[in-house]
């Protein structure tokens, strides 16, 4: 995994796992790789991976089963909340940036629409 050296590694590991959960690579109830395996997968050290997992445990996104390891929560509401939180973060950024350029809500919507249409064309 390619890290951005300016951003704390534990945060980047959390985002990496969030993505796996939200895109379904890791399904509700799936077992996470061991801490050492995750460290190898992303090339970070075990303490940093552990810190990321500890935070995800306290966020109730993963659950720890004694002696068995960590599992993705089966509470889909928690996953839904996580999705909303991440989507909200990205929207906040775009909204603030575009407002700072003096775009009105209607302008943001129409710019967004035409941008998405041009992106879709490029993909075809």
């Amino acid at each position: 995994m390619k890290f951005d050296d300016k951003v704390p590694i534990y945060i980047q590991i959390k985002n990496y796992l969030y993505h796996q959960i939200l895109t379904g690579t890791l399904q509700p109830g799936d077992k996470l790789p061991s801490v050492r395996q995750l460290a190898l997968d992303v090339t970070a050290n075990v303490n940093t991976v552990q810190r990321a997992l500890t935070e995800m445990l306290s966020e109730d996104i993963i659950e720890s089963q004694r002696g068995k390891g960590n599992f993705v929560t089966t509470d889909v509401d928690n996953i839904k909340q996580l999705r909303n939180k991440l989507v909200n973060e990205q929207l906040t950024l775009v909204y603030q940036e575009l407002h700072a350029l003096n775009l009105s809500n209607d302008e943001i919507l129409s710019e967004m629409k035409s941008y998405m249409e041009s992106r879709d064309e490029q993909h075809e």
Binding site: D4, D5, K6, P8, I9, Y10, T48
Partner: peptide, 11 residues
């Protein structure tokens, strides 16, 4: 290391 990234906002 992560404190440097967090507090100083640098690599």
């Amino acid at each position: 290391a992560d404190e440097i990234r967090e507090d100083n906002d640098m690599g």
